Amino acid sequence: MQKLKYLDYWLLVPYLVLSLFGIVMVYSASADIGSQNGGSPGSYLIKQAIYVLLGMIIVTFMFKMNLNKLRDKTILKYAGYLALAALLLLLVRGQTINGAAGWFRLGPIGIQPAEFVKFYLIVWLANAIDQRQDELMEDGWWATMLRPVLICFGIVFLIFLQPDLGGSTINAAIVFVMLLASGFNWHRAVAFFGGAFLLVVAVIFPLVVKVSEMGFAKNVYQLQRIVAFINPFKHSQTVGQQLVNSYYALSNGGVFGVGWGNSIQKTGYLPEPNTDFIMAILAEELGLITALAVITLLFLIIVRTVLIGIRSGSAYQSLICYGAATYLTVQTLFNLGGVLGMLPITGVTFPFISYGGSSTWTLALVMGVILNISARQKHYRATR
């Protein structure tokens, strides 16, 4: 079929706009970093432009390919072995950035396997659930899904050990939502995760505060992030510096911003201005209006993806859509939550806007598959 005829512009246009706008914001947010590191102000711009260009090639490839190739047992098996080997190797040979040994250095770029695992879990788990539809009806949920659940738990646990709290939580959320869609009792799920949340709020956070007051969190990066979240201004000269300067950036920007390229906080005050905190720089330079426009475009992609999943007559395709929408939603909430001080800083990027090859390419894989599913749906409706 002529897939271009059935291209979903409600997905493609926001993706292109956000990706291209991301290149512009990466340049603005990273120009000072590039100079401070001995390079040129445009060094990150060039890299991000290449990442996005390669991402668009990936989107085109995934859009045109036969979706059944993603269900090939051999491909899924060896991709799983590769992911497992990479995650295990990271524990002993990974490059440590911001307290997590989650990167392999390949020349001038860093590869983050936990990003690609998000895509792998989506397509693998969708296939695993779809192939067990009859067994789910006959043998019950736990008897049928225990093995896939244990495999997913093992993968997420390896990411957690890096330690990468943000990456492991996003992957866990993807798995959780897809398992719910497979027929898992949502009452039990809500009770379990609600209880876990209350435990964290009532026990873990107070414990972290006590630990920080005793000085034990001084060299533990993950604990420092929670300490900074609880009381950033008390630790504004140390672990709370990121969040406090994020507040300053948001305050400086106001509704319309101080102008593109005019951020104060990116000039050495706010660490990671081109990755974790790029939305703070965006809000400072271009204001609340532009930030809301970016979030609206991303929200459009998420809603469109969910609608495609709902309309699909294939359980496999629906599950992929739900997993992809969860990935985009949770990652967005985690990033914005960290920038706004509503959640501990988890070190995750903002989709399509932040600098990074691994995240850009993983998003491209997901977008290509969703565009593929949407085109198949449009073709089916047009020919039936």
Score class of each variant (00 low, 15 high):
V239F: 06
N252V: 10
L300N: 13
M137I: 13
Q133T: 12
V190M: 08
G337L: 05
A364W: 01
L223K: 08
L180M: 15
F176V: 14
T383Y: 10
D139N: 15
K64M: 12
L158I: 06
I301A: 03
T360Y: 00
G195T: 00
T275V: 09
A143L: 10
M342I: 15
Q112W: 03
F184S: 06
A364D: 05
G102D: 04
E272M: 07
L223C: 07
L343M: 15
L300R: 10
L12K: 03
G107Y: 05
L340D: 05
V369W: 08
I308Y: 02
A49L: 09
T60I: 12
N274Q: 14
L165M: 08
F160R: 09
D130M: 03
F61C: 12
L297N: 05
Y9Q: 13
P148T: 10
N252T: 11
P344Q: 02
V208Y: 00
T329K: 02
T96G: 04
Y27F: 06
G268E: 06
G253T: 03
L125A: 01
I320S: 00
F61K: 15
G368S: 11
S374C: 12
Q224C: 08
N262V: 05
T305R: 07
S40R: 10
Y15G: 05
L45K: 01
I308L: 10
K218E: 13
V244A: 12
A172F: 14
L250G: 04
Y44P: 01
G167Y: 01
Y247K: 10
T96L: 14
T329Y: 05
V294C: 07
G240R: 01
A173C: 15
I370V: 15
V123T: 01
A291M: 15
G94D: 04
A128S: 11
I122T: 00
T169G: 13
Q224T: 04
I50R: 08
I57F: 14
M342Y: 13
A114K: 06
P351H: 07
L371N: 10
E285S: 05
M279A: 05
Y221C: 07
I46C: 10
L45S: 01
G240A: 08
F229R: 01
V59L: 02
A228L: 08
R384G: 13
L146K: 10
G368T: 12
S358R: 01
L243P: 08
